[in-house]
Design a protein around this nucleic acid. Sequence first.
DNA 1: AAACGAAACAACCGCATTTAA
DNA 2: ATTAAATGCGGTTGTTTCGTT
Length: 369
Amino acid sequence: MGRAPCCDKANVKKGPWSPEEDAKLKSYIDQHGTGGNWIALPQKIGLKRCGKSCRLRWLNYLRPNIKHGGFSEEEDNLICSLYISIGSRWSIIAAQLPGRTDNDIKNYWNTRLKKKLLGKQRKEHQSRKGKLQDHHHQVKRSSGNLMVPNNNSNNTNSSDQIHYWPELPVLAPIPYSTGEQRFNDHAAIRKFLIKLGGRFSQDHDHDDVMILDGTSSSLQFPADQLLSSTTPQLYEQSSINYMPSSSMEASNNSIDAQLIAQTLYNIDGTDHHLQVFQGQNNLQSELGDLVYSNPQRIDGNLELIYSENTTVDNRIMTSAASGESIGWGDMMNALISPPVGSNYDHQEMQQGMMQECAFSNQLRYPGMQ
DNA sequence: AAACGAAACAACCGCATTTAA
DNA sequence: ATTAAATGCGGTTGTTTCGTT
């Protein structure tokens, strides 16, 4: 048995909205609000529209302070950064961009932003391909631990650091340009992170305090998996206490929560973003320094995020280049697992990572195994 | 000027989640 | 606790606009 239809399909108008319909809907909602019932609303005001259609029209076009088009570089960066972190959760991404709707952002991503990034990426890919292969062989010969860059090297050119494990996308801080509340709001952060799978210590018996942007929410994430994989260790920094969870069941949602927390942390407009890199391996520190001392690198095009040597492997680039859509699963796999069939030595790479993480964890948690 | 294709935008559809009875 | 309705979301499709030939 199928689901009951939300409206009488035969009696509802479809297609573009006329100015009259818009006016009717807008004036009613302006005066009375939605009444908490979209399904009943069209009948009330004599619109032959499905309630869902009314809702969509209101949310995407009629409600006040909606912006269309003219995305700034700042917005581009934020969208890309969040997409990398949480995937195609457009409503969440939209919540970070005042005046933007999820539909708008989704369309913008699908029609322009993705191409813009991939165009850049492909150019980079071509120019670096030869360089990368040469250097990879060199490193493999000279070092047993790929995670540890040569400390003697003063070379901060990112193209010479690309042989190590991919860093997470890191963005220069983007100051909020409006007074609108986003994740500065305690309740919003809480709600959002709970939704993504984070837990608050008041719900459990913990006193761990994680502070995002000065907000003293108490959060805890089962983050073991990420700590032993690719994520920079954000959580133990001076403003954030991370306690590794005893659970090994780090869900995707928890990973999402961490990633977006990190993303938001990185872009929250304060200067403590540099702490993200403390306690990490030298490479990540250097990359952090590099990024923040050289915002041009990522300004407007996010080359770091999509450079072929860092986060996105050939599987994605191939599918993207051929016009296929890139799924979040693919993206995550590319971030968390090494590229299969690439030039990287998978096991060697992972082993190096594990060693490096164990070492840095030992430094940070001397008493812990 | 017409035809065509690509890009951009608007809206729909179906599924998942939330809410209320 | 259960269930149906309402809502929200993301993927997809349809339509319009723009640029090129």
